[in-house]
Amino acid sequence: MNVIDTTPSLALVLAIGVLFAAGVYLLLERSLTRVLLGFILMGNGANLLFLVAGGRSGGAPLVGTTPEDEMSDPLVQAMVLTAIVITLGITAFVLAMAYRSWQLHGHDEVQDDLEDRRVARHAARNAPAFTDTDSEESGETLDDEAAQVRDETGTDSADGTDGTDGTDDAEGRTTREPR
């Protein structure tokens, strides 16, 4: 049971369909200007959709001017009103981006993300996307690796040298933090 009369009007439905179709067609372009225009068209379509969902047409929702049972739904109108103004803000923002893109690259086309492309190239030839010490096989044995790791040890010997100095030179490979 419908509490309110919500009979949709086919004319509005058609307008919604065309606005969305044209909007999406433009949205899938690469030129930011076209994307923006597509966005505006879709926004108009969405606003109409709200209106249709709000119910049948009626008089202006002004108390005293229109009898209450003949009014159109004021709630959707309040929502759509702010949506319209926000669309203006978004439009300006995308325009600024288009301009910036033109400033930087000489065109306003959205380019593919370079990092994603790099990942795809690496994946295609099965090369590691980054150097990962966890997955490479060095071919060294555990003993070899262990020999490279020594602690920063030291004793309190009176002459101030630490207990390992006799062999440090011979090894020439202690990975001691330079100080």
Binding site: M1, N2, V3, I4, T6, T7, P8, L12, V13, L14, I16, G17, V18, L19, F20, A21, A22, G23, V24, Y25, L28, G45, L48, L49, V52, A53, G55
Partner: peptide, 22 residues
Amino acid sequence: VGVGVGVVMMGLALVAPLARIA
């Protein structure tokens, strides 16, 4: 894709008013 979305939205416009039962 555009036509598909348009058709879906038209369908939605027809169906959505029916959802208002409260």
